[in-house]
Write a protein that binds this DNA or RNA. Structure first.
Lengths: 216, 216, 216, 216
DNA sequence: TATGAATGAGTATTCATTCAT
DNA sequence: GATGAATGAATACTCATTCAT
């Protein structure tokens, strides 16, 4: 999904750029390892080995194992933030914008950093870091709620409880990281499409009117 | 279920019963600790201390830390299985039964074992255990899909991709364990209600009158 | 000098007593190792090996390497404190009591814990520990000054600056730990005797009156 | 001696001189760092940072961390040797010369290199280095003993055991490095004066009139 | 049944040292 | 001369697990 697995064997470029590339490679490798084996089951030795580098070298680019997880989280979150920004400017109605967000969100979640972003637990981090992550996560939540409220305001969305709707939506999307694998039959886009279908139209048949008075 | 914090100080009863009670207390205590601090951040000492018992004592009731997590998982899953069984017999239409399941599912997820059930990672378990858990989880997934298909068959549900719909639904529900805390403002039932509203009716306003009143 | 090098091979006695004995052995072994190789050059593995025990076992008796050093320090200091107490009650005049202290001090310094007591640096300890040690050391210093002042008061001692005199005395005594080895030709008592001779009478010949107006 | 904090920013001068200056700065900076944080708690990074230079640069001027400590030791010892030489030629009687030495010794101990000279442990050095240092230290000890013996010979000093007297004197002086700080209320000279008073006259009041006035 | 004691295996982190540029 | 980058070796500390009592 992302290319440069080991810039240690890719000499070109100037100094600062090299450093940046290598750091990126460290983060990416970590993200993949975490996704595959989990944070606690991944030792720095594992990551170093995957990069064909020795353990102390990692410390040249990252100050901590915790910082490593945090960097992965940030990397993933950045994509999500971009997604939010793009979505906000994407469509006319609140619903259209929300749909756009779902697509981009799915893409971000299925990226290498999806797991870290979603599963980085406060529990695994120092209180300070935990708080920062929590705050950032909450920011995304607020974005979703805002779009839902906007949709309600412009009449394109009808839900009783925007907060719970946001939780449900985010939950469904985040959960993708639990079952999605790169070799999956469905692309992120296809998944998003199916989700949109469900979330927009609901389970109940739309044709004509609601299937009865007692709608269940 | 949430009571017996330490049967070590509650002497009476016969042999086998005593053992069973204590084992239950171990599992429950573990489940709570895992939920609070995560599996890897919980040491057996922590659990033992919570039970006012020493570490080796735990091994009298569980053979492993891994077994402990597995037991928690099983305990939670049992509730979910019951939920499925009840749901299957709960209503007339596929949709009604699915809605019933959502309610019971939410209740199970918010129980003490919810976290373990949802978050017990294959990563934390030996391959063998991991496979067992995966299979059991998949069973629940199949139940949901079956209900959705039933609903489609009887016309009470209209979705394009039952599999993705099941993933979305399960995802939203499982995710509850990430944000739900006992002191939350909403009960499991209330959450389920909101979720049902969203999943049944969708975000888009229903053409005529939205199926007013309690849609459940 | 002290006997029980390894109670791990000395089974008898009751529970609590056993524990205490072993902990003492840990501390003593640590003290000896520190004295021989220095704090930083002594690894826990070294100490464990000396006790024919594995490293984690040490943690059963001491919570920290730092705590280990501190315990050694305390052990040594305890002897010094006893020395002070005994000295305070030892003689009539301030000078007699001071002389008594010098004797006991020398004995304490040449004990296995002498090195730790004298050389435990604030630098090697956490700020908190460092502060505690500093305070305790300062207590001894005050004791010495008090005796000197008492001697001045009762006419048995004549010095201009009690504080500096205390520093000089303590310095000479503490320094013993730098050069003293168990196999040394002089016993602690003999050393103390020589020191007393020097400190009480001074370098200048005493016979008749002071050797001249210009006493240097 | 205390000035040249970083000749890296002071370009002029010829080649060899430059090198020498920089090496001196390295040694001095190291000495200060060792004194402040201890040898083992000072990393080469610390020293490099203090010089606004990178770690490998240090190796241009010193071959080793050990060599660094040794150089500091040598630097300090040189002062002490000078002190001995000057003292040897300073006065008429052995005692006068000894007193002169005490003054110069105190000055050397309170210098930036005092700590290293006194506290450089054999433990921190390779056996070879350790042996060299021990020999050099012993040289100083011999000087002191020689002066004492000279004083005994010319009647200006009266002590039973010259060796122990030398140990006591050196101990008191060396120990200054444990408690002396640059911001201390007493100058090295003042300290030496007090010490001389104590060591020359002793604690016991002199029979007739104590050698009043400035006894030095 | 319960526990004190002990251990093996593992892991993050530090640091002096080297070397190509 | 100076530095960025890399590494080997070491070390404190943790924890699940076992076993004699």
């Amino acid at each position: 999904m992302t290319r440069p697995s080991s810039p240690w064997r890719v000499p070109p470029g100037d100094r600062a750029r090299q450093h940046e590339l290598k750091r990126d490679a460290v983060i990416l490798t970590a993200a993949r390892a975490f996704r595959e084996r989990g944070y606690h089951n991944t030792s720095l030795d594992d990551i170093a080995a995957a990069l064909h580098v020795t353990k102390p070298t990692l410390y040249y680019y990252v100050s901590n194992k915790e910082q490593m997880l945090f960097a992965c989280f940030e990397e993933g979150l950045a994509r999500l933030t971009v997604a939010c920004d793009e979505a906000r400017a994407a469509g006319a109605s609140g619903r259209e914008r929300l749909v756009a967000l779902v697509h981009r969100y799915a893409l971000a979640i299925t990226s290498d950093f999806g797991w870290c972003m979603v599963r980085a637990e406060d529990q695994d981090l120092s209180p300070a870091m935990g708080a920062r992550i929590k705050a950032l996560k909450s920011g995304i939540d607020q974005e979703i709620r805002a779009l839902i409220r906007a949709g309600i305001a412009d009449g394109s969305i009808a839900v009783r409880d925007p907060k719970m709707a946001a939780f449900a939506l985010a939950g469904a999307l985040n959960w993708i990281s639990h079952w999605y694998r790169d070799d999956a039959s469905l692309s992120a886009g296809a998944i998003a499409e199916r989700f949109v279908d469900l979330f927009v139209n609901g389970l109940a048949p739309r044709t004509r009117q609601a299937p009865s008075g007692k709608s269940t």
